[in-house]
Write a protein that binds this DNA or RNA. Sequence first.
DNA 1: GCTCTGACTATTC
DNA 2: CGAATAGCCAGAG
Length: 106
Amino acid sequence: MAVFATPGEYTEQVLGVVESIPAGRVMTYGDVAAVFGARGARAVGMVMRYHGSGLPWWRVIRSGGHPPTGLATEALIQYEREGTPLLPASTEAGYRIDYDQASWSP
DNA sequence: GCTCTGACTATTC
DNA sequence: CGAATAGCCAGAG
């Protein structure tokens, strides 16, 4: 389906925003889309899935500071390596991102 | 141009 | 607080 093999303008903008996020900072899917005036939070996630191989996808999280579905463990490794502020939580991964400190705006 | 999918979000029970 | 529901958007077939 939505394989994103052919990046459109929307995809290109998502890639640009994600790559501009500095280490130790994060943005929600909705915020990334909002940067270029869009609301496609789900579409942003699909871009990550396909282009994640060359992007700091762990710097893009869900609302409330929750890590990406099915990649909480992989993301945790990156957060600890970059010193991203985390907080304990009763989630599947057992943690969540400290959005108050890690939130970033372009 | 319609249909289906999904690394989402907000609301309601 | 967790599960279910309903909107949401972009791109492929």
